[in-house]
Each structure stands twice: as C-alpha cells, then as structure tokens.
Design a protein around this nucleic acid. Structure first.
Length: 967
DNA sequence: TTGAAAACGTA
DNA sequence: CGTACGTTTTCAAG
C-alpha cells in the first residue's frame, strides 16, 4: 500500500541530492548542546562537531541521499558586504569556541568521504543555490539542510528545504505548500517578503513595524516588491510611511538576499557521491575529540552507506497536496443555517443502510466462535465495508482529548472534497444541528480515533455515535505492531504522504488534537489545516477499508473494537475515585521507611551514594565491598536488580556489613518504589472530582491487549501485602457504595486447552478440581492428595511458562532447581499433554508459513523476524508467535465480555459502572442495592463471552475498596 | 537536549 | 536464556 502513492513523483526518480549549509548546521548544533558537557580533557570544545555529525547522520539515515555536499562560508566577506557593510555583523561575532570547531568539522567530513565546498567571495548559501540548480538540471531531487531562511527561495517541486525547528531534531520539510502555508507567499516571492521584514540574525533592518503578515499582504496585493515600490504612495498609515522611508534599504535587502545560483563550483552533481569512509582517519580524529565507541559506530554506519543497503527505487515524496492527497476545500461555518446549507450541498445522502453489509453469504467457517445464546455480540467475519465506504464522510475534531479535562477546539465535517470547519464554542443551535447531522450519518462516518472524539465532542455537549470506520483502530488491526503517534505519522507510514509539521508549534500537535495543543489553530482561520487532516483520514479509510474486507477483519472492527472503544471512553470519563487523604498518608509512610533504609545503607557503605543509581550501587558492592557479581545486564555491566541483591544477601551471611547494606538497599528499593507509585497516583488525581482518569490505549499492545497510561492503572501493586495496601485507596465515589472485582482464572491455560484440543488438559478444567494439583498428579503419576506443595508450584510454573515459550534454563532459574531437573519436568509435562506441545509448535509453524499469527477471532500479528538469519531475533520471534494467539485470544475474550457487560448493565437499568480493566479483571463501581444484580450480570457476561471446550471460570469479590474487593 | 539503560510494577 | 505493557530515574552523549 505504501508504494501506491509515490507514483505521482516519477520526475524525481534519478536520486536525491542532499546539500547542507555547514555554517548554519554548526550554529544550531553549538547552541543546542551545552558546551560544558562536550569538551576534551584539554579544553577543546566539541559540542558543535558532535552535534553536527549526529544531525547529519540522522538526516542521512532518514533520507538516504545518493549525493551529498556541504557548503561553508569563507572568511573575507562577499559581494554582499560591499553592498551592505553591516551585513552579518552579528554573526561574525560567533563565539571563539564555535569558530575553533569549524576546521574540525571539515576534517571530519573529509575523513568521511564527504565533499565540502568553499567558494571565496560567495556564501555557503550561494553554493547551495547553485547545487540546487545543478541538481535540478541533472534530474535529482534536492534536499537542502539549512537553518537559514533565505534558502526558502530555492524551494520548488524538486527542491525541499529541511529546516530545523525549535529542537534541532525535528526538521520541517519546507515544500512549496509548506512555505505558502507559513508565509502566504510562494517560495519565489519569499525574498521580497524577507526584504520587507528584514533579518535580525543577519543584522539586516527591514521596514519598522512590518512583519511577515503585512509583508505577505502587500506582496499578494501588488504582486511583489516591484509592485509595492511602484504603489508605495497608495499605502496609508504608519506602516506606509515607514515603507516609503525605507525604500532604499529594501531594494538593497532584496539584492543582498537573492542567492547566486550559477557559481562555478568545479564539480558536477555526479561527483558528489559519498560512502567511502577513511576509517583510520576517522578513528584518529575521534580519538583526538575523545568521542566514544558508540558515537563512532553510529556515525560511521550512517556515512558508510555500504552497511545499510539503500532501498531500491526510493523516491523523494513531495509534501501533502503534491502527493495525491486531495485536500478538501474548507468553509468556515458559524451558524446552523450555514451548516445545513453546506450539508445539503456536500454531504452524501443519509440512509438506513447499516454501515457493514454481508459480503459473502455463502461463507461458512468464518464466523468465529461466538456465544450462541449471547445477546448483543457476535463477531461477523462476513461483514464488509466496501458499500458504505463509497458513501463515506469524515468527522475530525481537534483540542485536548484528555479524559476528565477534555476541550474542543475545532470540529470538521468533510465529504466529497469539501470541509465544513466549526470552531468551539458552538452556539446551541449550531451544536444541535451538528448533532443531528452526525447522528443521521453515523453509518457512513469515518474518524481517526472514535474514543478521543467521544471526549472532544463531550466537551462541547455533543455525543459521538460509533462510526462506520475508525482509521486508528483499522490501522491497528492491519498492522498491530506499528504505533502511529498521530495522524501525521499514520499518513507517512501508511500513505507515504509526508506532511510538514505545523510551523512554530513545536510541542505540539498537528495530531489528533489530543494532548497539549497550543492556540496555533486560531492563527489560521481559513481551515486549511483542518481540511488537510480530514483528507488524510479519508485517504486512510480508502486504504484500510478494502484491506479489512480482504482479510475479513471488518467484523472485528465493527462488532468488537468499536464497541469496546465506547466502553473504554465511558470508563475513562468516569475515572476511579481515590481517597486522597489515604494516599497522602501512605506516601508519607513509605517515604519514612525509605529514608530509614537509606540511612542504614549509607552507614553500612560509609558513603552517601545515590541508592537509585545502579552504577553507584554496583561500585560499592563489587568494588568497595569486593562481592562477587552474579549476572550481567544485557549491556555488560553487573546487575543490581532485586534477584541479584537477594542472592548476594544469602551469600554474605558471614559479612555483617555487606548483609546490613544489602538488606537496607532491598528495603529501600521496595519502599521507595511504592512511594513513587503512590506519588504518581496523587499527581494524577483530578482535583475537580478526586478521581483518576486513566487513558486506555487500544492500539498499542501488539497482541490485542489494552494498555493504560497517564497514569497506568494496570500495574497497581498486588503481589505483596505492603503494595496491595495501595488498592485500599481506590474507593466508590459519591452515590456508590462498593467496588466489585471480577476476574478470569487461568484464561490463557483454558484457551490453550481449547485450541490444542488436548483431552487431558480439557478434562483437568472440566473436573473442577484444584487445577494445578490435578495437573501435577497427572504429570507425576501420583494421587492428587499426595502432591506436595513443591510439586504443585513446580507444575504451576511450568503451566504458566508454556505460553511464554519458557526454556528449561529459565524454568530452572525461576524454581531454583537444576537445569537437569527442569528438563525432566518439561519432558514429563509434554508426555502428559502431548497435544499442547503440538499446538504450540503449530503456532510457530503456521506463522512461519503465513507470516502472521491469528487469534480465535481473526486478529492478526505479523512476525517478519521468523525468517531472520540472526538466531536471537528469530528465537524471540518464535516465542512471540507462540504467545500471540494465546494472549491475543484472551484479550479478545475480555473485550467481548466488556461489551456484553456494559450492555447487560444498561439493559437491566443498573446505575453501576465498569471503571477499570486489568487484562483479566474488571472493576465495577457498585450503586446501592445493586450488589447482587451486578455480580450476576458481570459474571455472566464474562463466563459466557465465548463458548469453549472448557468452562470459563470467573471469581468475584465486593467490598468498600479495591483491596477489600479481592477474593 | 535527547535517548538509552536499568529497574520494577502489572497480567 | 519467558510474553505483553508503562513509569521513573539516572546518565551518557563528551
């Protein structure tokens, strides 16, 4: 799918030339990195060199240019100084610490085999302009990496400027559209605009009081600088006066900022190949600069194109509008009448046709296991979206979608190439009309992130019906391990459309409008940005719809993921009530414990080290105290994790000082962690309602599970008593009397029993006995009542390890038994449950053949790593492929249960509500008098979410807080 | 300033 | 040398 959209750019297939403005890049690097942190023993500053190399290598990695040249300014001035004596007066005063690094940068480039060009009498910019001209003539697409805005005049269909934003990492792609977007003039007109405005960085004065806005207005009014000068008398006001007073300066500015594009460089573009690194020279230079080995490896790899083969036929994608994205025509809508007029003209007809139609009525096998008697939910694999897709329209909102504090900024309805752009706040009549329009057309609505839109719309008093297609969820089903951060990323990845970041709004968001969007949207009242967003959603829908139909996954989207997203949205909006007083008390208690442990540790160590620093800890343990290390971390240092510290503690029984220290560190680790968790919860509590509104991520976990962020409420301690106390701070809110917790027991094992068809394992579950004891008796061939605690726990660990691809080594490690013993256990286990073994093997084999795994409900996960020549990579993929169908099916089942559970609560008119999901557990806030009905409803929804060869066992508990609801 | 690593909480 | 996550903290980058 990615390839399809690049066909429009056949004019750029020759290759890519990267032309770099060396001085401007060095400047950026110098000011971005603290010089104190980057200097050699002898005091030579290296921050600019390091930053330059890093930036350039990042751009090379991202763009894979075929040709590369770096242009530098030359001392001694240019024709510009003769015209304008003060020219670059400020820049000449560059700090000494930067100037001394320029020769080093050039030396590095030479060693890297990169051509750099200096031309006496000209600036680097002129060289760049010339390179762009030459590149164009030779059929290259040219990328100009420069922090100098004068370069914008070079931009055209074949020249893109990469302009560093506030953080040097995020480069803006300045295409013709992007330049126009930002300045409202064409790239060719940019020098006119700059002449009027001036350039403080180059010490060039413009017309006082005239900025980009006025300059653009005049240029568009009079066609350009010549026109403005000719009509200078017609411009009134103070600004007109200022203009007339500075005409000479402006003319001069314009002559100075025009880049020379025909310098004789003495090279051709074809000469600018690179990739022949002189490793010895690089090593020598890096040694002098005291760069580390990691830097060296990273930089060398980028420049030495040989190691990373170029993608064949890679073309430079142009931005946005030039690349097959037909942006909608925006129209600002301010009242209900205007909206209705717009809708009458552009919206597709609403009709009662459901958003999915039966595609394949003859298909038999596809409707994956569903509960036959389950009201409300069946996942229909025959459901197709092709028909509805043809009549689709897009809803897109921006603002902050954070649950509990959502805020709507803009609302766009787009169809047939036209976009109605609404800005919050909406007056009541407009809100009502909008709601009606959305509701009547929900069956053909496409949206990116229905759940986020629920929050955004709710902030304006609107409700969000479920759409026909959610492109965020669709992208997740299509490729669950790709995580698009926002709409721009999704467009880049799935459509190969590279939009420019929103200029200036660095922290933020051209994304869904969630997060901390600035007020930039208001700067662009024309709605172009909004229309572009809608066009992306539309293009994504056009791409995903057919893919889902082909894969028969539309039912999974429509019948499962979309309903789940509504349930999750409700849960997020409700939030979970916490007892702030209790949390504060816990925090103080844990803090006191941690402090005491720290004191003891410091006394024993004789040094006030930072106990939270593994490095400092390792130094004390393995150097000062001379203890023998246990294991290493994956980067080679000695681990100081809890398991290692325990081991050391056991060994150090004779050494009192080490024993005290280790004990104290362990206690500090535990209590400090708990303190941190509690503090995070305190910080996340919404002061308005004393509730914590987490966000459930529905498109992050590659297996199909949910995750929880900001804060994560799926990792509240539960394993030991001290941590579990934290759950006592989760309480029912006003108008509710209890919390109920319901969880599946051994779902994943039950799924394995079902999917493998292993009679012995199925019987183990049907018998209703103590499962692990029962399994142990089979494995060891001993009567159930003679199974020891050890035997039971060993078998239990084995059972749980199965679904993870546990090795005998790992099993031995965990059970603290000999590897040989673990091997015997594993052999015995598989002898008893042969079909389980076969099933696990078949998961991997199927995945190797098809390229992906599948859950019971058709959720896929792709595993390209199965074909890797690298053993570690391959084996990791194998474990993933073994686990994904099991973990994924469990996730599917819980999602079905959630939808059924909420439907049941509503059907029975209960006020109780689901507030949390922790993978196999649901937490419900229970209204007075509903204890019994809620327990029955939720338990039933979970137990009968799906019919398997084994029963689904659900246990529940209810109490005055989450801890007391344990069972 | 950024990103990786280490640690540790959950299922 | 067991899967799937998220958060906090430190520290290197030199």
């Amino acid at each position: 799918m990615a390839e399809n959209t690049t066909e429009n750019n056949l004019n750029t297939t020759r290759g890519t030339l990267l032309a770099v403005d060396g001085h401007s890049l060095a400047f950026r690097a110098f000011f971005a990195l603290p010089v104190d942190n980057f200097s050699t023993e002898s005091g030579q500053a290296t921050n600019a060199v390091w930053g330059f190399a890093t930036m350039l290598s990042q751009v090379i990695d991202a763009e894979r240019p075929d040709r590369l040249a770096v242009a530098f300014d030359v001392k001694g001035g240019t024709f510009r100084n003769r015209m304008l004596p003060q020219y670059k007066g400020t820049r000449e005063a560059a700090p000494e610490e930067l100037l001394t690094q320029l020769p080093l940068i050039q030396e590095m480039l030479a060693a890297m085999g990169v051509t750099y060009i200096e031309k006496p009498g000209y600036e680097g910019d002129d060289v760049i302009g010339t390179l762009a001209t030459m590149g164009e003539a030779a059929g290259y697409h040219t990328l100009v990496l420069s922090g100098d805005r004068d370069a914008f005049q070079l931009v055209d269909d074949n020249v893109t400027v990469l302009y560093p934003g506030h953080h040097f990492k995020d480069l803006k792609r300045m295409t013709p559209a992007a330049v126009f977007d930002k300045y409202k003039v064409t790239p060719a007109q940019y020098p006119d605009l700059a002449a009027l405005r001036g350039e403080t960085a180059d010490n060039i004065p413009g017309v006082p009081g005239v900025g980009d806005g006025f300059a653009a207005k005049w240029i568009n009014q009079y066609g350009g600088l010549d026109g403005i000068i000719a009509h200078a008398d017609e411009i009134g006001g103070k600004k007109g006066e200022a203009l007339r007073a500075n005409l000479e300066q402006i003319r001069l500015n314009r002559r100075v900022n025009a880049l020379v594009r025909d310098v004789d460089l003495g090279v051709t573009v074809d000469d600018l190949a690179f990739g022949h690194v002189d490793a010895a020279r690089v090593d020598d230079l890096f040694a002098r600069l005291e760069f580390g080995s990691r830097t060296r490896a990273r930089i060398l790899r980028s420049f030495n194109g040989g190691e990373l083969p170029k993608a064949a036929g890679k073309t430079e994608p142009a931005a946005g509008q030039e690349n097959g994205l037909a942006a909608a025509t925006p129209q600002r809508i301010d009242d209900a009448a205007a909206l209705e007029a717009w809708a009458g003209r552009w919206m597709p007809e609403a009709d009662a046709t459901p958003s999915g139609t039966r595609n394949d009525p003859d298909a038999t096998a596809a409707t994956a296991a569903t509960a036959p008697d389950a009201p409300g939910l069946a996942i229909d694999a025959d459901l197709a979206c092709a028909d509805a897709l043809a009549r689709r329209w897009t809803l897109d909102a921006t603002g902050s979608a954070k649950p509990g504090q959502a805020r709507l900024e803009t609302l766009v309805l787009a169809a047939n190439g036209h976009a109605a752009v609404l800005r919050a706040p909406l007056d009541p009549a407009l809100a009502k009309a909008t709601q009606r329009l959305i509701d009547t057309h929900a069956g053909t609505m496409t949206v990116h992130g229905a759940k986020e839109h629920m929050h955004l719309l709710a902030a304006a008093g609107l409700t969000m019906p479920l759409p026909m297609l959610d492109t965020k969820l669709a992208g997740y089903l299509v490729q669950p391990d790709f995580h698009a951060d926002d709409l721009t990323h999704a467009a880049a990845h799935f459509l190969d459309i590279h939009l420019d970041e929103e200029p200036e709004a660095t922290q933020g968001q051209l994304d869904l409008g969630d997060g901390a969007a600035g007020d930039e949207a208001a700067d662009e009242p024309d709605g172009r940005r909004e229309a572009t967003r809608a066009a992306i959603v539309d293009a994504l829908a056009a791409a995903f719809g057919p893919t889902l139909d082909e894969r028969r996954q539309y039912g999974l989207l429509k019948d499962l993921e979309l309903p789940v997203s509504r349930v999750l949205g409700d849960m997020e909006r409700q939030g979970a009530q916490v007892d702030a007083t209790r949390l504060a008390a816990m925090r103080d208690g844990f803090a006191a414990d941690a402090e005491q442990a720290q004191r003891i540790a410091w006394d024993a160590a004789g040094d006030r080290i930072n106990l939270q620093s593994p490095r400092q800890l390792a130094k004390v343990l393995f150097e000062d105290m001379g203890l023998k290390p246990t294991k290493r971390t994956k980067s080679g240092s000695y681990t100081t994790n809890a398991a290692a510290l325990q081991e050391l503690y056991l060994r150090a029984s004779g050494d009192e000082r080490a024993g005290d220290f280790l004990g104290a560190v362990l206690r500090h680790r535990e209590t400090n962690k708990l303190k941190q968790i509690v503090q995070t919860l305190i910080d996340a509590t919404n002061p308005a309602d004393q509730r914590i509104h987490t966000t459930f991520e529905q498109t992050v976990a590659a297996t199909g599970r949910l995750s929880s962020v900001d804060p994560n409420l799926q990792n509240i301690p539960n394993r030991n008593a001290a941590g579990r106390e934290i759950r006592a701070a989760f309480v029912p809110g006003e108008g509710y009397t209890a919390l109920m917790s319901c969880d599946y027991s051994q779902v994943e094992l039950r799924i394995m029993a079902h999917l493998s068809g292993d009679e012995a394992l199925i019987e183990a579950f049907r018998s209703g006995a103590d499962f692990h004891r029962y399994v142990a008796s089979l494995v060891y061939g001993i009567p159930v009542d003679q199974i020891s605690a050890d035997q039971r726990s060993h078998v239990k660990a084995m059972s749980y390890g199965l679904a993870y691809g546990l090795s005998t080594y790992g099993l031995a490690q965990q059970l603290r038994i000999a590897p040989r013993e673990a091997e015997v256990l594993k052999a015995q286990y598989f002898a008893t449950f042969g079909k389980v073994h076969d099933f696990l093997e078949s998961c991997v084999a199927d995945a190797r053949r098809k390229g992906y795994t599948e859950t019971m409900f058709g959720r896929r996960r792709y595993f390209p790593g199965l074909k890797s020549p690298n053993r570690a990579t391959r084996e990791a993929a194998e474990r993933g492929a073994l686990n994904a169908p099991i973990q994924g099916t469990a996730a599917d089942i819980m999602k079905i249960a959630m939808v059924r559970a909420e439907a049941a609560l509503r059907r029975e008119g209960l006020a109780s509500r689901i507030i949390l999901q922790i993978h196999d557990e649901l937490v419900v806030e229970v209204a007075p008098g509903e204890e019994h009905a809620v327990t029955a409803a939720i338990t039933d929804a979970m137990e009968h979410a799906v019919t398997l060869a084994v029963p689904l066992d659900v246990s529940s508990g209810i109490g005055a807080d989450w801890q007391l609801a344990a069972h």
